[in-house]
């Protein structure tokens, strides 16, 4: 469904990712593992069009999307929940969700349906719909970021460290939510440092180091890989 072939991204002289090859099939949860600065977020930026790859190809369902602008990419059905959430902090929860449905802004019914689905999934967002996004707790902000992304009815969702900075109990809920979104038909590409939890819901994974993919395989393979265990699972 989503395929990256030999993708390179540079920030000035600095090569942020090199020779990245990733394949995500429809309906899967795929996880990108790696330390801070290993290249996971840059890979996401390249897919979303926030950073232009200097070379390589990115394809969604055989349509080349590499180098397109972010708004064109959202229209193709890819949506990213960034690590720092990028919410509109002085807008209300409801306004944030409304902006999330930007690509469907002319379809009133679709918009209503989307609101219903997101509020069903996150009842707390309905309760807080009139509060500003900036006044929410970290966990609620993360829910809002995911909710906003769902409003565009994506085919594939890129989730960048959804568990970062959240209490352990909320993290567990977050992974349940991700599984639920996936069950309801959205393919998921997840970047995580919490390798244990991520691999338990993913079908396969890629391990990043210094901008390169150093190991890839199914979740079982990565779980049993000595190096991966030592570096990312800690057991």
């Amino acid at each position: 469904m989503l395929e990256l072939k030999n993708v390179y991204v540079k920030y000035g002289q600095f090569t942020a990712i090199q020779n990245v090859n990733i394949q995500v099939d429809a309906g899967e949860i795929v996880v990108l593992l790696g330390a801070n600065g290993a290249g996971k977020s840059t890979t996401f930026r390249a897919i979303s069009g926030l950073s232009k790859p200097v070379s390589g190809e990115i394809q969604l369902e055989d349509q080349a999307i590499g180098g397109k602008s972010p708004d064109q990419i959202v229209k193709t059905g890819i949506v990213q929940c960034a690590e720092d959430r990028k919410l509109f902090t002085q807008m209300t929860v409801q306004e944030n969700l409304m902006m999330g449905a930007y690509v469907h802004r002319k379809k009133k019914n679709e918009m209503k349906k989307r609101f219903q689905e997101v509020y069903d999934m996150f009842p707390i967002l309905y309760e807080k719909r009139k509060d500003t996004a900036g006044s929410l707790s970290g966990g609620q902000q993360q829910m809002l970021a995911i909710g906003r992304a769902l409003m565009s009815k994506p085919k594939i969702m890129l989730l960048d460290e959804p568990s970062i900075g959240l209490a352990p109990m909320i993290v567990e809920q977050m992974f349940e939510t991700i599984k639920q979104i996936n069950r309801e038909g959205t393919t998921i590409l997840l970047a995580e440092q919490n390798a244990n939890a991520a691999l338990s819901i993913a079908s396969k994974g890629y391990v990043f180091e210094n901008g390169k993919i150093v190991v890839e395989g199914t979740s079982e393979e990565l779980f049993s890989n000595e190096e991966v265990r030592r570096a990312y699972i800690g057991a």
Binding site: F88, Y102, R148
Partner: peptide, 9 residues
């Protein structure tokens, strides 16, 4: 960037 990511032109 949040605006770009929801598809705003």
């Amino acid at each position: 960037e949040g605006a770009y990511l929801v598809g705003i032109n």
